[in-house]
Simulated scan of single mutants.
Amino acid sequence: MVYREPMTDPQQDRHVTDPADLKAVAHPLRVRMLALLRRHGPATATELARRLDTETGSTSYHLRILAKHGFVAEAPADPQERRHPRERRWAAVHRTTGWSNTQLAATDAGREAAAMMRRRQVEVLIGDVERFEAEQDRLTPAWVEAAGIGDLQVRLTETSLSELWDRFYAHLDELRARDTDDPATAVVSIVVAGFPRAADR
């Protein structure tokens, strides 16, 4: 499974094997902070606090946790910027965060961490739906028509479901590369899911 956000400077992907690492990033505020760093690039604790409407002390604490688990790192200083010598800018280290469901499910801690992350992803989806409903009058008809959620039930093998994931992400990367320099682009939040379910439910 993959949790991914667009980055201004994409780097390698992170495949999490330690449940403690996934649990650390699954904290609600840390998920949002990491998403902002991936989307907008390096920022200070103060800048993140302003965006998230929280206290700088809180964002500083959570940045240290993310750094401890290898998700963020201090960004190199820009000689062009005039900042306080002790002010630190933080950057996301990876483009995406991924993990193996079966590997993590081998322990109670891993199962709990993966479950926490899935809940965060659902919360992101709910927030996106609520924002869309509140803001759609300010969007163009084309954006309103393009937005939406698919809810399908199909019969597939586990091999076909895995192939669907691979093809989806490959095509998404192609589209993102095609649209990179198009001024009409906007950040689009995409949440995808595929779970087996009992035939009688």
Score class of each variant (00 low, 15 high):
residue 37 L to M: 06
residue 37 L to G: 10
residue 37 L to T: 09
residue 37 L to D: 12
residue 38 R to E: 10
residue 38 R to G: 07
residue 39 R to A: 00
residue 40 H to T: 12
residue 41 G to H: 06
residue 41 G to N: 11
residue 41 G to I: 01
residue 41 G to S: 11
residue 42 P to E: 03
residue 42 P to C: 00
residue 44 T to G: 11
residue 44 T to D: 05
residue 46 T to S: 10
residue 46 T to V: 07
residue 46 T to R: 08
residue 47 E to A: 14
residue 48 L to P: 05
residue 50 R to A: 09
residue 51 R to W: 11
residue 51 R to T: 09
residue 51 R to I: 01
residue 51 R to C: 08
residue 53 D to R: 15
residue 53 D to K: 14
residue 53 D to G: 08
residue 55 E to P: 00
residue 56 T to P: 09
residue 57 G to L: 10
residue 57 G to Y: 12
residue 58 S to E: 15
residue 59 T to D: 07
residue 60 S to G: 14
residue 60 S to Y: 04
residue 60 S to Q: 12
residue 61 Y to C: 08
residue 61 Y to F: 12
residue 62 H to P: 03
residue 63 L to Q: 01
residue 63 L to G: 05
residue 63 L to A: 03
residue 63 L to R: 00
residue 64 R to C: 00
residue 65 I to C: 06
residue 65 I to Y: 05
residue 66 L to F: 07
residue 67 A to M: 00
residue 68 K to G: 07
residue 68 K to T: 13
residue 68 K to I: 00
residue 72 V to W: 01
residue 73 A to V: 13
residue 74 E to V: 10
residue 75 A to Q: 03
residue 75 A to K: 00
residue 76 P to C: 02
residue 77 A to W: 07
residue 78 D to Y: 04
residue 78 D to R: 01
residue 80 Q to E: 15
residue 80 Q to A: 15
residue 83 R to H: 06
residue 84 H to P: 05
residue 85 P to K: 02
residue 86 R to C: 08
residue 86 R to M: 14
residue 87 E to K: 07
residue 87 E to F: 08
residue 88 R to L: 07
residue 89 R to F: 05
residue 89 R to A: 12
residue 90 W to A: 00
residue 91 A to F: 01
residue 91 A to P: 03
residue 91 A to I: 01
residue 91 A to R: 10
residue 92 A to N: 02
residue 92 A to K: 00
residue 93 V to I: 14
residue 93 V to P: 05
residue 94 H to I: 08
residue 95 R to I: 02
residue 96 T to A: 14
residue 97 T to F: 00
residue 98 G to K: 08
residue 98 G to A: 11
residue 99 W to K: 02
residue 99 W to T: 08
residue 99 W to P: 09
residue 99 W to I: 06
residue 99 W to F: 07
residue 100 S to T: 03
residue 101 N to F: 09
residue 101 N to K: 09
residue 101 N to E: 13
residue 102 T to E: 11
residue 102 T to M: 03
residue 103 Q to R: 10
residue 104 L to E: 06
residue 105 A to D: 06
residue 105 A to H: 06
residue 107 T to C: 01
residue 107 T to S: 03
residue 108 D to G: 15
residue 109 A to F: 06
residue 110 G to I: 02
residue 110 G to C: 06
residue 110 G to R: 03
residue 111 R to L: 07
residue 111 R to I: 02
residue 112 E to K: 04
residue 113 A to R: 03
residue 113 A to H: 11
residue 114 A to Y: 04
residue 115 A to L: 07
residue 116 M to Q: 13
residue 116 M to V: 05
residue 117 M to S: 13
residue 117 M to I: 09
residue 118 R to K: 08
residue 118 R to F: 10
residue 119 R to P: 07
residue 120 R to D: 07
residue 120 R to H: 04
residue 121 Q to D: 11
residue 122 V to A: 13
residue 122 V to K: 12
residue 123 E to R: 13
residue 123 E to H: 12
residue 123 E to I: 01
residue 124 V to Y: 11
residue 124 V to R: 14
residue 125 L to Y: 14
residue 125 L to V: 14
residue 126 I to S: 15
residue 126 I to R: 15
residue 127 G to E: 09
residue 128 D to P: 04
residue 129 V to D: 03
residue 129 V to Y: 11
residue 129 V to M: 13
residue 130 E to N: 08
residue 130 E to R: 15
residue 131 R to K: 15
residue 131 R to N: 13
residue 131 R to I: 10
residue 132 F to Y: 12
residue 134 A to K: 12
residue 136 Q to P: 07
